[in-house]
Design a protein around this nucleic acid. Sequence first.
DNA 1: ATGGTTGCGTAGCAA
Length: 263
Amino acid sequence: MKIATWNVNSLKVRLPQVLDWLRDNPVDALCLQELKLDDDKFPLQAFVDAGYQAQWAGQKTYNGVAIVARQDCLDIQRNIPALDDHQRRIIAATLKCPAGDVRIVSAYCPNGQAVGSEKYAYKLSWYAALRDWLSDELARFPRLAVLGDYNVAPEDRDVHDPAKWEGEVLVSQPERDAFQRLLDLGLSDAFRQFPQEEKSFSWWDYRRFAFRRNAGLRIDHVLLSPALQPLCSACVIDKAPRGNEQPSDHAPVVATLDFGSAS
DNA sequence: ATGGTTGCGTAGCAA
């Protein structure tokens, strides 16, 4: 089973690239972020035609998340239950699998804009609510995978120029601490379970030829519960779509889960 | 040097 996450920065603009990518990378489930479209604008039929189902939590202009999956999606949860928030940043679903159901979360964590800003405070409080909710989810669903744009580079090796980024938003210690509290629940960063190239990133600013210079950050992550982590045999960032014409500023991240012969 | 790019929506904000 392959699961993936991709911040597409407008599904309307990126739909052809998402469909092309799914054709070439027929994953079982793809978590999307930053749809930037309302619920009634979600292009369901295009995914159905490609052999997928979908569940989504849309929002006009900002945010919006989805899970596109081959399997039936059950027990859909939109938003963090305890958080009174109009921003659409979370959707969760249980994927029916012969080898055992898997709970999938598609998360678009707040960007935070700038350290000390109102949006930064919102980011930290949102992370605390996410932690509390994921603690409950882990208890309910031992086989839990949380995929998305976390807007946090966990370590200096996830930053192209740590000295320049020191203390900046996406890298600051309070944000890293908030991310670490997710790992403290028992979740593990699938990408770091395997040897990786140095300077592996998942996001590159549109400006200043950042992708060409590989001036990026690793802020898109696949977090796996203790029950799933041993089943994960690979986790890779697919840089190719970032080189497309009119690309998203993020690259997809793909994790492979081996359930044995059944799946 | 405080720039630069993209998307949304049609000015200026968010990322």
